[in-house]
Design a protein around this nucleic acid. Structure first.
Length: 117
DNA sequence: GTACTGACGGCTT
DNA sequence: TAAGCCGCCAGTA
């Protein structure tokens, strides 16, 4: 667990989210809700997405392309450098993406709550 | 100071 | 089983 600094609570929230995303293995994907649940669901899944929006401002690299919504759709692809960057990054890792939707999503799903315990 | 919006998810109808 | 509505927290107008 990552210690929190009361003076920078939201910044640590970003760090926690980014930390979890970095743990996602290449070729696997996770969801906003799974991360929110892993962090105790104290913030809505929306906050996780909001934290992802700030992923590019993080010092360390955050594989944001491995985080998608619960439907397996690449809802955040428009926030990448190019609209196709997210899909291409996933396909480069062996994840099949068709029409902005991860194929065989249920099998590729990586849940931090059960994987990290 | 109030209201709307957003990389979403779960519950209810 | 599918579709719709409401809630989470923070930022911006």
């Amino acid at each position: 667990m990552i210690p929190r600094n009361p003076t920078e609570a939201h910044r640590n929230f970003f760090q926690e989210v980014h930390e979890v995303v970095r743990l996602v293995p290449a070729g696997r994907v996770t969801t906003y809700g799974a991360i929110a649940h892993y962090l105790g669901a104290r913030h809505g899944a929306r906050m996780v997405g909001w934290a992802m929006m700030a992923a590019h401002t993080a010092d360390a690299y955050v594989p944001a392309h491995r985080v998608i919504n619960r439907n397996g759709q690449l809802t955040g692809r428009l926030h990448f450098a190019t609209p196709t960057a997210m899909q291409e990054a996933l396909e480069a890792e062996g994840v099949r993406v068709l029409d902005d939707e991860v194929q065989d999503f249920r099998r590729l799903f990586w849940d931090p709550t059960t994987e990290l315990e």
